[in-house]
């Protein structure tokens, strides 16, 4: 169980995390989504008492993180995979953590195998590790105390597609056994397949949160026509709320059938009409997290950012 209650952080006079409230329940994977600089890392550091909050409070497993007697046994944390001494061997990194939290060192080999690092990788110094290997080592480090809660900041960074699928399965399995997972990402597609719930943050504020299905609902229908002005007029005439889609056309908050009728009534020839699914969530993600949150849902779409998200 992770509870963030109104967490707020000011850095250099700027509010970088503003009244962030959410909960992660046992048995679920929560995706903490937002563009770089949205406040994800700062929030996660406040959750783990690595950074003091200016307002609000965080509770892990019902209490403050720093009040857990041996936190490594109950909470697994990966906040930055590159925060390792480059001159230390991978196996030694895990052995140190094992010694601190009182886990037999025999667990180190088991963990290395579990995250897909073989004996020779374990003997290498972290300097020689790729980012993907550092992520795996960091995940092993988080798992070594056999925790109930996992807090992972951008764990998919640097993982190849096989590595991402492996991590998805690992987190799913962890949650299915009753564990609580919070993982952050700036890329929607990294978490949408894994997360049961999404918390979307932009400009330090929570922009939306709920189950993945809830957030998908109401994202509507994608419709395109060669004559966009006529399509817009037809939609307006039918009283349907529409916003520009990421690839041209519109995303309409209505069923495809209603949109079709509106186009028919307006005499507009459509070239594309579809229920928005993943694309809708993606659109939602960008609308929610970009520039001025006030302007939602008609926020402008930056094509470069949309591209980066693919």
């Amino acid at each position: 169980m992770i509870e963030s209650d109104g967490l707020t952080k000011r850095l250099g006079g700027r509010v970088v995390v503003d009244d962030v409230t959410f909960r992660c329940e046992p048995g679920t994977v929560t995706g903490f989504l937002g563009p770089n600089g949205a406040g994800k890392t700062t929030t996660m550091r406040m959750l783990c008492d690595l950074s003091p909050a200016d307002a609000g409070s965080a509770r892990i497993l019902g209490g403050r993180y720093r009040d857990l007697p041996n936190p490594g046994r109950r909470v697994g944390i990966l906040l930055d995979a590159s925060a390792q001494h480059p001159g230390r061997r991978g196996r030694e990194v895990l052995a140190l953590a094992a010694q601190v939290i009182g886990v037999p060192e025999s667990r180190v080999g088991e963990l290395l195998r579990r995250v897909g690092l073989d004996e020779s990788a374990g003997r290498k110094r972290v300097r020689q590790y790729s980012l993907g290997m550092r992520q795996r080592l960091g995940i092993a480090n988080a798992l070594i105390g056999d925790p109930e809660v996992l807090i992972l900041d951008e764990p998919a960074n640097g993982l190849d597609p096989e590595g991402m699928r492996w991590m998805r399965e690992l987190l799913r399995d962890f949650a299915d056994r009753g564990g609580t997972v919070l993982l952050s990402s700036h890329l929607l597609h990294e978490v949408e397949a894994t997360a049961d719930r999404l918390v979307i943050i932009g400009n330090g504020r929570i922009q939306a949160q709920g189950t993945r299905d809830e957030l998908l609902q109401g994202t509507g229908t994608i419709v395109e026509a060669r004559d966009e002005a006529a399509l817009r007029a037809a939609l307006d005439a039918a009283g349907l709320a529409a916003r520009p889609g990421s690839d041209g056309g519109f995303v309409v908050e209505a069923e495809p059938e209603e949109v079709g009728r509106a186009a028919l009534a307006g005499g507009v020839a459509l070239r594309h009409l579809a229920l928005s699914q993943g694309a809708g969530l993606e659109q939602l993600f960008f609308d929610l997290t970009q520039g001025a949150p006030e302007s939602f849902p008609a926020a402008a779409t930056d094509p470069d950012l949309t591209e980066a998200a693919r």
């Binding site: 783990c48 690595l50 936190p71 490594g72 944390i77 930055d80 590159s82 001494h85 953590a97 601190v100």
Partner: peptide
């Protein structure tokens, strides 16, 4: 930056 890990295990 290993302090991140050190202080996460010993707050």
């Amino acid at each position: 930056r290993t302090a991140l890990v050190t202080f996460a295990l010993v707050p």
